[in-house]
């Protein structure tokens, strides 16, 4: 499989009243054709900003992508003209957003909104576009799709709306689908259905997926690889099985510990990691996880660890090997 998307040293900052927020600090990752990459990390760690920076969807001002490359099929998304990137958005790289309620325009019909990518990228007329939209809505499991083209978003339930959103993202058969916490706003049973749908469609259409979540449980059955983010850095990447088998960063360990478990009474329990997420107003010259880390050693306060190769396909940014508790 060849590299479809390659992000290198991506940095994004926001100018705010309190100072410059370093939301993404030199993030690098790759995505192969047909591969599914999961990005996990707690709220505010820069997951959304990373993918939005790639597609240049960061509100600017206050946001600015200050360094890095995002090569898609060899061309840098960050350098190309507005027109060029417009032709990629929605046709070759599509996004599904977190909140299916607010992510649709409330005063345009579903049919209109889902057909927009077809109109701009394929130059389809109304009739052709409608046929294609119906086909897509059928694929994502909307009952009687043709009768629903003239309905408005508020006439759909949350889960149905997210299905429509996925249909809208896939209507031009993109090579990459970016899903930014697509299930967070939904209740648990619906979440599972959406994940199942994503799997089915991926196997059907064969696109690559970047699936953002802060729930390791959701991603387990879906992703091939995982990138764990913390404070604007990727701090561990590995094939999904390695992450569960040999987590190599204390933060990842913490995340695994905070997977919801059923306790004796059968209730879901969330073990959270102690401490607060880092303030992003300064780029730290120490390990950003140090204030919350159980394994912290002297070196952690002196140097911010870079991503280090641990095994051929596994990198982690930590001075300590959590399995032994000793410095690497």
């Amino acid at each position: 499989m060849s590299e479809l998307l390659s992000v290198q040293g991506l940095e994004t900052q926001f100018r705010t009243r309190e100072g410059i927020v370093h939301a993404v600090n030199g993030v690098s990752f790759g995505l192969k054709e047909g591969e599914t990459l999961g990005i996990v990390g707690e709220s505010g760690c820069g997951k959304s900003v990373t993918v939005m920076s790639m597609l240049r969807l960061i509100p600017s001002p206050p946001g600015k992508v200050s360094a890095g490359k995002a090569l898609f099929q060899g061309k840098d998304l960050l350098k190309m003209s507005d027109d060029e990137i417009r032709h990629i958005r929605g046709s070759q790289i599509s996004m599904v957003f977190q909140d299916p309620m607010t992510s649709f325009n409330p005063v345009l019909t579903i049919g209109r909104q889902v057909s927009e990518p077809l109109e701009v990228h394929m130059g389809m007329n109304r009739k052709q576009a409608d046929d294609r939209v119906v086909e897509m809505l059928t694929k994502v499991g909307i009952p009687n799709p043709r009768d629903r083209l003239n309905d408005y978003p508020h006439q759909f339930s949350g889960g149905m709306r997210q299905r429509v959103m996925i249909a809208m993202a896939l209507v031009c058969t993109p090579q990459v689908l970016i899903a930014d916490e697509p299930t967070t706003a939904l209740d648990v049973t619906i979440q599972a259905q959406i994940v199942e749908l994503a799997k089915r469609i991926r196997d059907d259409l064969g696109m690559a997926i970047i699936w953002i979540t802060h729930d390791l449980g959701v991603i387990a059955g879906l992703a091939d690889r995982l990138a764990v983010m913390y404070g604007g850095y990727i701090i561990e990447t590995a094939p999904i099985r390695d992450v569960y088998a040999h987590p190599s960063h204390p933060y990842t360990l913490g995340l695994l510990g905070s997977l919801p478990r059923m306790d004796e009474s059968g209730q879901r329990r969330l073990v959270s990691i102690d401490g607060l997420p880092p303030v992003l107003l300064e780029k730290p010259n120490f390990c950003p996880f140090a204030p919350r880390c159980k394994y912290v050693v002297e070196r952690c306060w002196k140097e911010n660890p870079p991503l280090m190769q641990i095994s051929p396909d596994h990198t982690a940014a930590c001075w300590v090997n959590p399995e032994t508790g000793r410095e690497r």
């Binding site: 939005m52 597609l55 969807l57 507005d82 417009r86 032709h87 990629i88 958005r89 929605g90 046709s91 599509s94 996004m95 957003f97 909140d99 607010t102 992510s103 649709f104 325009n105 409330p106 345009l108 927009e116 990518p117 701009v120 990228h121 809208m168």
Partner: peptide
């Protein structure tokens, strides 16, 4: 959010402004 969605679909800025 739906303005961001509109941009992510590849609509031109003119269409985003006028239609959305």
């Amino acid at each position: 959010d739906y303005i961001r969605t509109a941009r992510s679909k590849g609509l031109s800025e003119r269409v985003v402004i006028i239609r959305h």
